[in-house]
Simulated scan of single mutants.
Amino acid sequence: MKPNHKGSAQLFKNPVLEKMTRTHIAIPITIFLVIATGLIYYGITHSFISILEAVGFFFLGWFIFTLIEYLAHRYVFHMDTSTPSKARFQYLVHGNHHDYPKDKKRLAMPPVVSILYASAFFFIFKVIFGTFVFGVVAGVLFGYAMYLLVHYVVHAYPPPKNFLKQLWINHSIHHYKDHEKAFGVSSPLWDYILGTMPKRSR
Rank of each mutant, 00 (worst) to 15 (best):
T45V: 06
H151C: 07
E69W: 05
M146V: 15
R88S: 15
I64T: 08
G38E: 08
F142A: 10
P15R: 05
T37Y: 14
A36Q: 02
W62R: 12
S114G: 15
P84I: 02
M109H: 08
Y75N: 01
E18L: 00
V127W: 01
P28T: 03
E18P: 07
V93N: 11
I25F: 09
L116C: 12
Q10V: 04
Y147K: 05
L148C: 05
G38V: 04
V93G: 13
P101I: 05
A72K: 06
V136Q: 02
F63G: 13
L148K: 07
A26F: 12
I64K: 02
F125K: 02
L11Q: 00
L60E: 04
H98S: 03
F122I: 02
V140E: 10
Y117W: 15
Y70W: 10
P111I: 01
I49W: 02
T37F: 14
F89M: 12
F77V: 10
V112C: 12
V136C: 11
F129K: 02
V113F: 10
M109Q: 11
F132E: 09
P84E: 06
Y144H: 08
F32V: 02
G61E: 03
I68R: 04
F32S: 10
Y41I: 06
G38A: 03
I49Y: 02
M146A: 15
K126I: 04
S47W: 11
Y70C: 03
I128M: 07
I115L: 15
F123Q: 14
G38F: 09
L141Q: 06
Y42Q: 11
V76W: 08
H98G: 07
G43N: 05
Q90M: 07
I124F: 11
I128T: 08
F122W: 00
F59L: 03
H46A: 10
S114M: 01
F32I: 07
I35M: 05
H97Q: 08
R22D: 08
V76K: 00
V136H: 04
D103W: 06
A120V: 14
T37S: 06
H98T: 11
K102T: 12
A54C: 13
G130R: 01
K6T: 12
F77Y: 05
L33C: 00
S119H: 12
L71R: 04
